[in-house]
Nucleic acid binder design. Structure first.
Length: 763
DNA sequence: TAAGGAACTTAGCAGTCCATGC
DNA sequence: GCATGGACTGCTAAGTTCCTTA
């Protein structure tokens, strides 16, 4: 790897939410922000030092939130005009500069096992698990599969054996982690009592279909619809201009959506209010419409209070009442939450249809507040096997369509009314269909590892190209690789929040500094990425990249595209030529996983205690989260909970000094008396000191971890970017229980990795 | 071949659950 | 038994990528 590829360590983003409220909050939290930045600095410093390959370093500077402001409405027209022109230019350029040699159509989208097997060098690891290699029992091919379901495999026959095994495992773990185990055990017992759990199916030991089909048999019961609207009790009034007013059901229902969000900042936003009012009026009778002309005169207070009281009442319900609800939910889950796919009972991810409500777009979303309409059976397309028991629509209704398409994975779909996009009901991440895809994703990233040096050499070469489009492509790829930026598709203006990724960066999103402090060629990034999360980073780049950027910026307005001769389609086509299956997002997966692996190697210390090891893991995970810019709003109770923890630490410290004093006294006593009794006392006191020291250490580690995690979200990278086999191998190598790293749901999702990865696994 | 659509992954938020400590 | 707070889960928005259509 070249010294230039400082993945994960040179990053110095200092992000924040892009919303007005956040900006506002940020201003008032400058001090806190500086503190946070300092923490992050330290974090990065650690990463930097720990990675010898990563020589490049960057400087961290506190982000000026005000810089985040985007062009105001007056420049919108100008920008739009420019966009139009740029679009035309891009099209023209891509036609003009089309490579002479057309790409051969050799791309196999769905990597079939056969195709993978035919590339032994690159795909070493794909079927590398011993278990997998052993499974030659499945020599029959897919054509031989029956479409009809055989008996669905459930726990029955192997149940006793399996449970025995689980119990043994429980006992083993008890020593290491009794508390957590208690929880899991309880949950397991509860389930055992209630239902027949499906046998853990090792789909990863079986072959995959090679014909592009996703399943052979699919049966399910259709979705669960949102409960119908229940009218407000008469005592709960809505007021207009200070006077009570009874609304008709449709208008009242939409009013309740607003009332439910009254405490939320959304309802203070102009766009939200405007969109809401416009859509609300569509639900009103003409009489209501003529009366209700000003949202500011509407008083939803009583409605809001009513919902709060309801929520409070729910919390105060008796155990029995709560249990009843739980049972009903469980019943629904059992009935609708599973499907049968190819002889196996699989959990459905989202079997409930999204209820109606007000659209909560993120960031400055132009459609926030619009009415998300109620989805009815006649909006739903059902997908299942022809020969399965077809799901029945609710009495008196019809499905929009009944489809039997086994080239897709979804069970039901509908078109939502805000963006006009399609929503799906799909399987849970623990399902075969999702797991296979996930596994495949990491295998593609591992293949990238093998050719990344070549790709890097090539794009560095391309920085010198005579063709502008190639230089742009090469610089963009460098950013995607080095900074783990997203591809950045073009978006329809006015339809969504103004966010960008690499290919859609605009001139206004970067600043160039030929010299900054003691560094040369520094690029400052400041833009809103996915979910309107701010990406802020200052990074020194190679001279050639810097010169190219200067060139790309020439004669452009702030709102012009930085890469005006590039889009994600062009980039991905190019990547496809470099490696089969390579797309921009593979770089994110690759860099995230390789960073985790490197960090774990650097941070782990064999002598560490278990909590210290877990802290090391979390730090490695954090390094990735920082690289990928995964942020979260600090928990509302953060300061308070930190204070509480600090109090505990202080108390523990006092306790420790008291215990030490006692030990000292006991030692003195023993020195004087030399009897057995005083000796035993010394031993007891010593043990007490030891125990308190351990408790203190645990609390301190907890405080450090929590503080470092304040604004970093670890979950996203853990679930989507980190090859789970790296974590599993690390756990096995350092004898860390997997439960310390993955919770139950995560263990289910990564069952394939937990089963196949040994301690020597290399990404 | 561009544009739009479909399918699927990635993302943060918020409500709920449940362990913990008093 | 209760309050607290962190972990977990569900939800659904917002991306990416590939496919289809005109």
């Amino acid at each position: 790897m070249s010294a230039d590829h400082a993945h994960g360590n040179s990053q110095v983003n200092c992000g924040s939410k892009g919303s007005d409220a956040h900006k506002h909050k940020d201003k008032h939290k400058d001090k806190e922000q500086r503190h946070k930045d300092h923490k992050k600095d330290k974090e990065r410093e650690k990463i930097k030092h720990s990675n010898s390959e990563h020589k490049e370093h960057s400087e961290k500077k506190h982000g000026d939130k005000e810089k985040l402001k985007h062009s105001n409405g007056s420049s919108e027209k100008h920008r739009e005009k420019h966009r139009e022109k740029r679009r035309e230019d891009k099209i023209k350029t891509s036609q003009e500069e089309k490579p002479k040699k057309e790409k051969e159509n050799g791309y196999v989208r769905e990597r079939s096992p056969a195709a993978i097997k035919s590339e032994p060098e690159e795909d070493n690891g794909f079927y590398s698990s011993p278990q997998h290699n052993k499974t030659s029992k499945r020599e029959h091919h897919d054509e031989g599969f029956e479409y009809k379901p055989k008996k669905v495999k459930t726990e029955h026959d192997k149940k006793a054996k399996k449970r025995k095994h689980e119990d043994e495992e429980d006992e083993e773990d008890e020593d290491i982690k009794p508390k957590k185990k208690t929880k899991d055990k309880k949950a397991a017992e509860g389930k055992k009592g209630k239902k027949e759990e499906e046998e853990k199916w090792k789909w990863w030991e079986e072959e995959r279909a090679t014909d592009g089909s996703k399943w052979r048999f699919l049966e399910h019961k259709g979705p669960v619809f949102a409960p119908p609207y229940e009218a407000m009790p008469d005592r709960v009034k809505f007021y207009y201009d200070g006077k009570p007013m009874k609304l008709n059901a449709p208008a009242e229902e939409v009013a309740t959506f607003f009332a439910k969000m009254l405490d939320h900042e959304y309802t203070t936003k102009d766009i939200f209010r405007k969109n809401f009012f416009k859509d609300w009026r569509k639900e009103m009778t003409s009489e209501e419409k003529s009366k209700l002309s000003d949202l500011n005169k509407c008083d939803f207070g009583e409605m809001s209070e009513y919902f709060k009281a309801q929520s409070e009442a729910r919390k105060q319900m008796s155990k029995a009442e709560k249990q009843k609800i739980k049972e009903e939910n469980e019943r629904l889950l059992q009935e609708y939450g599973f499907c049968i796919m190819d002889n196996h009972k699989e959990r459905i991810g989202n079997f409930r249809i999204e209820p109606p409500g007000l659209f909560r777009g993120r960031g400055d979303h132009p459609k926030m507040g619009m009415l998300k309409r109620r989805i009815r059976p006649q909006d739903i397309i059902i997908n299942c096997s022809k020969d399965s028991k077809q799901p029945k629509p609710p009495p008196g209704t019809k499905w929009k369509e009944l489809r039997h398409d086994n080239k897709v994975t979804w069970l039901a779909s509908w078109t939502e009314n805000i963006q006009g996009s399609i929503k799906y009901i799909m399987l849970n991440p623990s399902s075969r269909i999702k797991g296979e895809k996930d596994w495949q994703k990491y295998e593609t990233a591992r293949r990238l590892k093998k050719c990344v040096d070549r790709i890097r050499t090539q794009y560095r070469e391309d920085w010198k190209s005579k063709e502008m489009r190639i230089r742009q492509r090469a610089v963009a790829l460098y950013f995607i690789d080095k900074l783990a930026l997203r591809a950045g598709n073009e978006k329809e203006e006015g339809e969504t929040a103004d966010t960008v990724g690499c290919c859609s960066l605009r001139v206004e999103h970067i600043k160039l500094y030929p010299k900054m402090d003691d560094q040369e060629y520094v690029v400052e990034f400041d833009f809103l990425g996915k979910d309107s999360i701010r990406y802020y980073n200052k990074i020194p780049v190679e001279k050639r990249v810097f010169k190219n950027l200067q060139l790309f910026l020439e004669n452009k307005q702030p709102e012009d595209d930085l890469f005006d001769r590039l889009n994600t389609s062009i980039l991905n086509k190019h990547l496809q030529e470099l490696m089969d299956g390579l797309t921009a997002k593979v770089f994110r997966t690759y860099n995230a996983s390789i960073t985790l692996q490197q960090q774990l190697k650097e941070l782990a210390c064999p002598e560490d205690s278990l909590p210290a090891k877990v802290l090391s893991y979390n730090r490695a995970n954090r390094a990735v989260a920082i690289l990928c810019n995964h942020q979260r709003a600090p928990p509302k109770t953060f300061e308070k909970s930190m204070q509480n923890l600090q109090t505990k630490i202080d108390e523990k410290q006092n306790q420790l000094s008291a215990a030490r004093k006692q030990l000292k006294a006991a030692k003195a006593e023993h020195k004087a008396s030399h009897d057995d009794k005083s000796k035993r006392v010394v031993e007891l006191k010593r043990k007490a000191v030891q125990r308190i020291e351990e408790q203190l250490m645990k609390l301190q580690v907890q405080a450090t971890d929590r503080e470092e995690n304040k604004q970093i979200a670890l979950g996203t990278s853990k679930l989507n970017y980190l090859d789970p086999r790296i974590s599993v191998a690390w756990c096995k190598k350092w004898v860390v229980p997997i439960e310390k790293i993955y919770n139950k749901t995560q263990r289910e999702k990564f069952a394939w990795a937990i089963d196949m990865a040994e301690k020597d696994y290399e990404f």
